[in-house]
Simulated scan of single mutants.
Amino acid sequence: MPTPVPPCPDTPNCERVQRTFEAAPQRVYRAALAALADLNPISCETDPDNRSAQAVYRVAFVFNDDVHIAVRPSDKGGSTLHIRSASRVGYSDLGVNERRVRRFFRALAHHF
């Protein structure tokens, strides 16, 4: 089965993580959308039927980073949330995407 978010390239400007939750997929998806919004994207496209979303974040008023999320039912019940945060250009992002993913999970915790 293909991955629900794109793989990262072989550069340090991308962070891709998955976490499993005991909550139902729809509940995790709603909380994930709220967490994305908390991080103030410049745009966000959602696909409720596939429980996925793509958001764009501006960095240093110049660069855009893309964040993809997808929530899938877990094999053991509950849900698995997949997130990928990546720079569109450059090689290194000085840890920006890794920090964004950590902030996303902190924001997500507030919406459960």
Rank of each mutant, 00 (worst) to 15 (best):
P7G: 15
C8V: 10
C8D: 10
P9H: 06
P9I: 00
D10K: 13
T11I: 15
T11G: 02
C14S: 05
E15R: 00
R16C: 07
R19C: 10
F21T: 05
E22C: 12
E22Y: 12
A23V: 10
A24C: 08
Q26E: 15
Q26H: 05
R27P: 05
Y29G: 03
Y29C: 01
L33Q: 04
A34E: 04
D38T: 12
D38E: 13
L39D: 14
S43W: 15
S43L: 12
E45S: 09
D47G: 06
D49G: 07
N50A: 15
N50G: 11
R51S: 03
R51E: 03
R51G: 04
A53R: 02
A53Q: 08
A53K: 04
R58V: 15
R58E: 11
A60S: 12
N64A: 13
N64E: 14
N64V: 14
V71A: 08
V71C: 08
R72H: 00
S74T: 03
D75P: 13
G77E: 08
T80F: 02
L81V: 02
H82Q: 01
H82C: 06
A86C: 02
A86G: 04
S87Q: 09
R88L: 02
D93N: 03
G95T: 12
R100N: 07
V101K: 01
F104S: 09
R106E: 11
R106F: 13
H110N: 15
H110T: 10
